[in-house]
Design a protein around this nucleic acid. Structure first.
Lengths: 197, 197
DNA sequence: CCCCATTTATACCGAACGTTACGAATGTGT
DNA sequence: ACACATTCGTAACGTTCGGTATAAATGGGG
């Protein structure tokens, strides 16, 4: 019943992975429909039939990113103490943005950090996602304060912004060619001063 | 002698400022020649006659950025102690990337963090500039170690990378809508832990 | 076996891209 | 007054952009 008509000849998940890699490496504006169809190995009408349009395809690739290579962020929040949360966040970020299997950097940062009018909604989407991650971290730090795991006077919002800035800074460093060990040293230096008094 | 033929009817420095603002706000790929000519108020042949092509125009705008709104970086290196260098770097960066007179963020980061093939050379140029800044900071820290201004065991390269990552992280935060006070708190937290033991 | 829903490939759409020929306009040097 | 060097606006170049109309190919359900 659910399967009628000519069956699709390509794997839709593999196609999404290809799209994710292209958007990740070249950004939203820097990736053309021709780039995508060539990498996936399908024609343009097949791509449009399967994913809607370029913007919808990017959003689906972004979902895949958040649940896959970017999943370390939410995973780190589940650590039992604030110190472990930060430790995992920083070291996993260092590894994630320098994974040799993936493009360097972070899709949520370099997918559309700034752009022309045509990509404005994509930029907004990425801003929202980054803000969401920062807010989740803020809530985790607020919980830590309530649990006497962080000092009572600590400001969860300030700490979350501080840590997110460092993770985003590592993403820019990776995009600029920094190595995994380079970024791990940033994590190490940051951790040595955690929590800020 | 040097002035022959029909005189130019627009101010070439004002034009460069307009171009800088556009590239800064929309990135290299996100800014079209039509955007530029419209903002400057000249025709396309005038733009090409004055600046060569899009890539050359971007490079000239980038030079203007480094000597103008981005000049705080080199200025900070002249401070007498490593602590003051870092203090000025962080607080001036917080102000620079949230200057209400300018687009949020840093041109050297968001001008072309990642891109398609056509902008590859621009991306490389920005990577080189960022690496140059990090190297200058490394040399400044090396001097501080030699002057017993930083601990003998401190690694100037690691510290420079760490500070640059935070500055770049602040730029991403600004591009995402963070306020000046938000970023000053990042600077404050970072400084509280300086120098890392 | 044939209807039907769906995917396929070809070929094309109008718009925007970066870039440039070209001739008219303008002001200096002679 | 006239030649010359330069900039001006118009109009166009070929290419690529995101997106689609169309019809043939495919395989399950009756």
């Amino acid at each position: 019943m659910s399967v009628m008509g000519r069956p699709r000849e390509f794997d839709i998940d593999r196609a999404l992975d290809q799209a994710l890699h292209l958007f990740w490496r070249q950004g939203y504006e820097g990736t053309s429909i021709a780039d995508l169809t060539e990498a996936i190995g399908i024609t343009k009408p097949s791509l449009y039939a399967a994913f809607g349009n370029k913007e919808e395809l990017f959003r689906k690739a972004l979902d895949r990113y958040v649940d896959g290579p970017g999943g370390y962020f939410q995973a780190a929040l589940a650590m039992p103490t604030a110190h472990e949360v930060v430790e995992h966040l920083l070291y996993e970020a260092a590894d994630a943005v320098t994974d040799p299997e993936n493009p360097p950097g972070c899709l949520a940062v370099q997918g559309a950090l700034c752009c022309g009018d045509a990509a404005e909604t994509i930029k907004q989407e990425l801003m929202t996602r980054r803000a969401k991650g920062e807010e989740d971290l803020r809530l985790r730090f607020a919980r830590a304060v309530a649990e006497d795991d962080l000092p009572r006077h600590a400001d969860p919002a300030d700490l979350a912004r501080y840590i997110c800035a460092i993770v985003q800074g590592m993403a820019v460093q990776a995009a600029g060619g920094a190595s995994r060990d380079d970024l791990r040293k940033i994590a190490q230096i940051t951790l040595k001063a955690w929590p800020p008094v």
